[in-house]
Design a protein around this nucleic acid. Structure first.
Length: 288
DNA sequence: CACTTGACCTGTCCGC
DNA sequence: TGCGGACAGGTCAAGT
């Protein structure tokens, strides 16, 4: 999925596009799994409500409604939230859009607003989901209870970062970075990119990473994710922002999907291996 | 509890 | 061209 920078890009886009809009209709297309409690609660808590806030926690989007209910949305691997204004195919139709006319066959849920604009939840692989939850109950959801701190918060320090890993001493540093209970929002792209920045081999055990290396990793990880947000995220295949447009971090990536190319730091050839079940990209010479 | 692996889905790409 | 297998940005539920 979309990792922290992608979800943040969608959040920021939606904030500009849907705040204040009134929900007229909700359609769950074919897969109840994409929106399990829709049939029971949509009519009561969504229709006629307006959008109050669009928040993010880790890789989860939170759309608060005026009914004091919240749409909790996880895009997982291939989820998209695409807003389409009332005159989508008018003169202003963007040429850099990755999506065609919506809904399409990956559309799982359509939310229609009363100005005839629409928000589409598309998800090719159906791993993603939407849940409608009372806003006050969001913090007690199991995921919210266990997820780690937001790494880009100004108050999140290098010391706290290092301390979060103590529990995972015997696993690899990459596996620990992907563990959402350690740090929120890091996924496969930014784990690989951050480890390249810190010159750490992704397979190294956590207990063998020095405090100095952790300090560098803290800085590099925050840097790559901030750069990624500036670039609108990474579009490898499916990811698009709230306007259906791609992100450009992949043009900047140093190792992710760059196997066979030369390391821009030492000139060695970037390798791709399988580690903890995930494609893992690294420089075999300067990451040790 | 820490750690690893497979499962959840659809689509695409690659080798035979 | 067809077919089988591997693989894809993320979590979970199981197993050890």
């Amino acid at each position: 999925m979309p990792e922290l920078p992608e979800v943040e890009t969608v959040r920021a886009g939606l904030e500009q596009l849907i705040i204040g809009k009134v929900i007229r209709q909700v359609k769950v297309h074919d897969s109840p799994k994409s929106f399990p409690n829709a049939s029971a609660d949509v009519n009561t808590f969504m229709i006629g409500a307006h959008i109050v806030t669009v928040r993010r926690r880790a890789k989860v989007l939170l759309i608060d409604l005026s009914t004091r209910y919240t749409l909790v949305i996880h895009l997982k691997m291939t989820g998209q939230l695409v807003f389409v204004g009332a005159q989508r195919f008018g003169a202003g139709h963007p040429t850099d859009s990755l999506v065609g006319e919506l809904p399409d066959r990956s559309t799982r849920v359509t939310i229609a607003f009363n100005d005839d604009s629409h928000l589409y939840f598309n998800d090719q692989r159906k791993f993603g989901w939407i849940k409608l939850v009372p806003t006050v109950e969001v913090p007690s959801m199991p995921f919210m209870q266990t997820v780690g701190p937001e790494p880009l918060e100004a108050t999140f320090t290098s010391q706290e970062f290092i301390g979060r890993f103590s529990r995972r001493a015997n696993t690899s540093i990459k596996a620990a970075l992907l563990d959402q209970t350690v740090i929120a929002g890091v996924g496969n792209i930014y784990a690989d990119e951050g480890l390249w920045g810190a010159k750490i081999d992704p397979r190294r055990k956590v207990k063998d990473v020095t405090p100095q290396e952790f300090a560098t990793l803290y800085t590099e990880l925050r840097e790559v994710m901030n750069v990624a947000i500036q670039k609108g995220g990474s579009t490898d295949k499916n990811y698009v922002n709230a306007e259906g447009k791609r992100g450009s971090y992949m043009d900047f990536a140093r190792v992710f999907r760059r196997e066979g190319q030369l390391c821009q730091r030492c000139g060695a050839t970037i390798e791709k291996i399988k580690h903890v079940g995930r494609g893992t990209h690294f420089c075999p010479i300067c990451q040790t």
